[in-house]
Simulated scan of single mutants.
Amino acid sequence: MEVVRSKEFKAERAWGAKDIANMNGITTRLHWTDQPYKWHVNDGAEVFVVLDGQVEMYYRLSGKEESVVLNAGDIFFAAIGTEHVAHPIGEARVLVVECEGSV
């Protein structure tokens, strides 16, 4: 049993994470960041939940780049093959649920 106070979490580097759980190869991790990630495609589906702050999520559909601003409480689902990159607006804390070892 563990209680995680997400608003109190701060990593030593951008996209640093605290492992919350691993359930049959699906990981749940709390990330802190103040810097963009990198364009990537996950090995499996990904659920991206903004817990604190704002994140502009860029993604490509049929070669066209689009974006959406995610606020605290918003959820972004990246299906297999969705190329995307997260750009925090200031500091952000994000819960990510994905296949173990995914990019």
Rank of each mutant, 00 (worst) to 15 (best):
I26D: 02
I26G: 00
T27V: 15
T27K: 03
T27F: 05
T27H: 01
T27E: 14
T28C: 13
T28P: 01
R29K: 15
L30D: 08
L30Q: 09
L30V: 12
H31D: 07
H31N: 13
H31S: 06
W32K: 11
W32T: 09
W32Q: 11
W32A: 09
W32H: 13
W32L: 11
W32C: 11
T33W: 04
T33A: 14
D34W: 03
Q35P: 01
Q35K: 15
P36N: 10
Y37N: 14
Y37P: 02
Y37I: 03
Y37V: 06
K38E: 14
K38W: 08
W39L: 08
W39F: 10
H40R: 11
V41M: 07
V41K: 13
V41Y: 05
N42V: 01
N42L: 01
N42K: 00
D43Y: 00
A45L: 03
A45T: 08
A45S: 09
A45K: 11
E46P: 06
E46Y: 05
V47W: 07
V47A: 13
V47D: 04
V47G: 04
F48Q: 04
F48M: 08
V49D: 00
V49H: 01
V49G: 00
V50W: 02
V50S: 03
L51V: 05
L51C: 07
D52R: 09
D52L: 08
D52G: 06
D52A: 07
D52Q: 13
D52M: 05
G53F: 08
G53N: 12
G53L: 09
Q54T: 06
Q54H: 07
Q54V: 02
Q54E: 15
V55K: 05
M57V: 14
M57T: 02
Y58V: 00
Y59F: 15
R60P: 00
R60H: 03
R60F: 01
R60L: 06
R60D: 07
R60W: 02
L61I: 10
L61Q: 12
L61R: 11
S62W: 09
S62A: 13
G63H: 08
G63F: 08
G63A: 07
K64Y: 04
K64V: 15
E65F: 04
E65G: 06
E65T: 11
E65L: 01
